[in-house]
Structures are given as C-alpha cells and as structure tokens.
Amino acid sequence: MFSEKIISMLFENTLITLYMTVASTLIAYVIGLPMGILLVLSAKDGLRPNAVLYKALDVIVNLLRSIPFLILLVLVIPLTRAIVGKSYGPTATIVPLTIAAAPFIARLVESSLREVDPGVVEAAKSMGADNFNIVTKVLIPEARTALITDATVALVTILGYSAMAGTVGGGGLGDIAIQYGYYRYQTDIMFATVILLVLLVQILQWAGMRLARALDRRVRS
C-alpha cells in the first residue's frame, strides 16, 4: 500500500514520538514525584504539616494545569530556546511536555500516596521510623500499584500532548498526520498515524496494567 520510504518514515516517527513521550515522562517524574511527596508531607494532616509550602505547591500545580497545552507550548518558547537552542523538533518539544506533565504527575502521585492506609503509617511511626523511612519504605512501596497505574496514565496523556505538539512542528506522528493529512490531503497516511497512535496507547495501557497487577501483593493468588 505505502512505499518503502513512507513506511520507514512512519516507523521513524513512531520512534520519535516514543522518544518524546518517554523522555518527557521521565524528566517530569524527576520533578513531579518529589512535588507529589512534598504535597502529601506538608498537607495539614501530613507527616510534616507546612501550610506555606503546601499552599505554594498547590498554587503552582493548579496554575500550570489550567493553561491549555497548546498555549503553554507557545508561552515557553523562550525557555525552550534557552535550554535546547531551538524551538522546534522532538528534543525541543520535551521542554513544554515536561512542564505540562510535571504538575499533572504531582497530583497523581499525591492522590496515590494519600490512599495508603494511615494505620500502616502509624504502625511505622510506632516502630521509630522517621519521615524518610516512611516515604521510602511505606508510602511508595505500599502505593506502588497505584503509582504504576499513574505512570501509565501519564504516558498516555503525554503521548497525546506530543501528537498535539506535532501539529506545530514538534516532530513525531502528530507532525506526520498534519503534514500529510492536512496540508497534502494524503488521508491514508493520516489514518496510518492515527492507527499507530492508537496502537501505542493500547500497548502502553496493557503493559502498565499488567505490570501493576503483577506487582500487587494484596490479591489472593
């Protein structure tokens, strides 16, 4: 159906999409995970309540999350230029993707850690655990199923954003869809990219859920 050239272009751009998605998710976790943990710790009923810190984080997260991604993309162009040296292409897209994903991930992490049974945290405290012990040995391991599910949601969401970024020259499958489907009326290529995107989402979702379930020890086998 497609020429070899187009197939290899689709393949290459699938990899580019994955690269943008995975790289920005990873970097976003480096920022979002500690933010989520700090939100839980500093909350009023947290291990180390700190109203100022909590409020500050809360506002930052809400603010960033309320900016539509396409606008954020444009807003951060100067920052993207400063970091990457240019404002278009896959690597440059990682900057806005990360900025959009980090607060989203912070919220996901926050809500997952909150679900850990407070009784277990209390038990850990009664054994003389400090807050670091509680975060690393109780909160994160006990919430791991939810955290893996979160990561899956984050990956899929960022994949969608990356396709959006593609429409303004971000590279990857979204870029191809716009280039061929919109500007050149080659709808078959556009459909192919859509199918590839759907497949990617399905695979990520399936793998994430499987991993979450495989690592969950709460179920009776």
């Binding site: 049974d117 009784g119 277990v120 209390e122 038990a123 405290k125 009664s126 054994m127 003389g128 655990a129 400090d130 109780v138 391991p141 006990e142 791991r144 199923t145 690592l215 969950d216 020890r217 709460r218």
Partner: peptide
C-alpha cells in the same frame, strides 16, 4: 523519641501490616 519508640512495640485492631511486603 524515635529511639524510645523502638523500645515500645505496638499492635493494632486492624493489624496494620504492610500489604506489599511478605
């Protein structure tokens, strides 16, 4: 306080075990 707590064990109505640990 933490080191004193180590000298005082505690058990609970709902056991409060770490469910993801053996």
């Amino acid at each position: 306080l933490r080191s004193t707590r180590k000298r005082i064990g505690m058990i609970f109505q709902h056991f409060n075990l770490l469910m993801q640990r053996s």
